[in-house]
Design a protein around this nucleic acid. Sequence first.
DNA 1: ATTATCTATAGATCTATAGATAATGC
DNA 2: ATTATCTATAGATCTATAGATAATGC
Lengths: 203, 203
Amino acid sequence: MGHSKDDKAESHERIVSVAAERIRESGTESPGVAEIMRAAGLTHGGFYKHFTNREELINEAVEHAMRENETDAAQVVSGADDPLAAFADWYVSTAHRDDPAHGCGVAALCTDVPHLGRPAQESYRAQVERYLARLQGLLASDDPDVRSRANVTLSAMVGAVMIARGLGATDRSDELLRDVLEAIQERRLLPPGRHVDGRREPK
Amino acid sequence: MGHSKDDKAESHERIVSVAAERIRESGTESPGVAEIMRAAGLTHGGFYKHFTNREELINEAVEHAMRENETDAAQVVSGADDPLAAFADWYVSTAHRDDPAHGCGVAALCTDVPHLGRPAQESYRAQVERYLARLQGLLASDDPDVRSRANVTLSAMVGAVMIARGLGATDRSDELLRDVLEAIQERRLLPPGRHVDGRREPK
DNA sequence: ATTATCTATAGATCTATAGATAATGC
DNA sequence: ATTATCTATAGATCTATAGATAATGC
């Protein structure tokens, strides 16, 4: 047993980190307090010295899952010849499909977030904004429709990984990921005739 | 109490139909047997005369959710001036975002399916195939890359609805849906320079 | 007589709490 | 003395079962 304040901070971090993995793998409802504490090397009784209730842990775990992934993204694009291609390569991959526990929280938690409280929804929204800001930077900046294109690109990336996860590690799943990756890397999501009037009217 | 064989068949259908709604709204783990039976106007005790266990219901409910949505899709495109535009309009919409219970099972259940058994995974896979077959029919048929384009289009459609659900009914969410809808309707997901060599090498 | 549904409940699991234990840190 | 963690357990909830009830259908 360790009982210093540092130990407690380490324990807290470990619980949140483990929970962030489990909820991306099995959803926010599935893993129990006892299971998460066991995975963190602790017993379930001590849990309530760290969190007022389970929901508080889930909120911290959602925020952790979102930010953890974002730091990975920054490393991937830094110093790449084609940063957009590197970003897409990292995201739209079989490795990402097969390891949701350490992957994108926007993809893994999209179905859970509507049933969670404000803090988790805000963590989700903020991470979508960070992805969109990053994509706008990676797409040609002289395009009046960068934001629209970032929305389309993010949708295709997230959708591909989600459908691929539903299909499992099959040839069909691999093919879908590869087709979406190529479409992004070859800039096929660009408008064929450029729009010069900026944002169009919503129908 | 009604006790005829017809009544039982109706009860069975009602239980599966209600379950198909609840699992798309809250995931396959969340709704309990008692809750589903109550929503079907029955008590929980009779459940096991219809299903050997909860998992069997979930399998039937997943299959039901997938097929129900597919018949809606067929109606939407039939007789439309621009069937692809009509299909995208129906799928990439705020109405679809705000009503997962009656919406696409591929979107609603993608995170649950990997944790379910073979039958549910097969239902999921089959519905992805039906969507892709439909999209290949709606996209220009003289294109050697229709299949690739169907994969990209489906990913963008599903991804847009999933992210939009995570964001909730906000301006940002509406904008994302509108941008993806326009990209599909204006055929912006087409390659700018056509590829005549068919399928390219996987890198 | 058969059977679809209902009432009641057993057994398992989960969140949260209470009190004990064994370190830390003034 | 304080407190981080552990053991034990209360109370709620969930799946599944058993036996009772009240219709159907030969």
